[in-house]
Computed example of a mutant assay.
Amino acid sequence: MRAQELIESLGLEPHPEGGYFRRIYTSPHGLATESGERPTATSIYYLMTDAQPCGRLHRNRSDILHFFLEGDLVEYQLLDPDGGRSVRPLGGAEERHLLVPGGWWKASLLPEGSRYALVAEVVTPGFDFADHEFAREQDLPLDHRPALRPFLG
């Protein structure tokens, strides 16, 4: 019930990774990157619900700071460029913020018993879909494929 209230009150729309989102800020200042001009920062609300508890595995060129706003625990599956895998909690009595460096694969999951999680994300340099990539099985190290297969979408 609270998740639906947030979707309506915050004007959230379906996100290609799963869940719901709305961009809430785009910096008016530009920054030249190897991929072209980007805003210095962008920010979104991102909502996961128990109806869509899994966010697809993807990576961005930019760093992303995640800030827990309300709801239940969400877990992030992370895979660094060297193939190291970790699971990081966000929310509840756990961590209130999480940095995912540019170039790292990430996926999100509401564990069993979690109903929803509302997160704010700040991307720097700012987000552009040209800098975003969804994972394919062949992108992943062989030893992590079984654990990450559910996040491939």
Rank of each mutant, 00 (worst) to 15 (best):
D63Y: 10
R56V: 07
I44T: 04
S86L: 14
R2S: 00
D143K: 12
V100L: 12
G18S: 01
E137F: 02
Y116C: 04
L90P: 10
V74R: 09
L73I: 09
G153Y: 06
D63P: 08
T26R: 15
H58Q: 13
L152C: 07
E17Y: 02
S35A: 07
L6G: 07
E75A: 05
L142Y: 04
G102Q: 11
R2D: 00
L152A: 09
L47V: 07
H97N: 14
D128W: 02
R88P: 00
A93F: 04
G83S: 14
L78H: 08
P14T: 01
E17D: 07
L10E: 08
L110A: 11
N60E: 05
R23A: 02
S108H: 13
F129P: 15
L10K: 11
S86Y: 07
H97I: 01
R22G: 02
F68L: 03
S108C: 15
F67C: 08
P125K: 05
P16V: 05
I24G: 03
G84E: 14
A41G: 08
R136V: 01
M1A: 11
L90I: 09
P39Y: 05
N60L: 15
R149S: 11
K106N: 13
R61M: 01
G92W: 06
D80N: 15
S86C: 13
P125I: 10
L140V: 05
L142A: 15
I64M: 04
V122T: 14
E37D: 04
L148C: 09
A107I: 08
F127C: 04
P101R: 14
P146L: 03
S114M: 10
Y45L: 03
N60K: 01
W104N: 06
D139L: 06
F68E: 04
P111A: 12
T26L: 09
H144E: 09
R2F: 00
D80P: 09
F127P: 09
L110N: 14
G84L: 13
A147D: 06
L99K: 10
R22N: 13
G19K: 01
Q77D: 02
R22I: 00
M48A: 13
L110R: 14
R88E: 15
H29A: 03
P28M: 02
D80E: 09
A147P: 00
H66F: 15
P141I: 07
P150F: 09
L90S: 10
L6M: 05
D131N: 11
P28K: 03
R136I: 00
S108D: 11
S114H: 12
E75H: 13
H132V: 01
L90R: 13
S43Y: 02
G92F: 04
K106T: 04
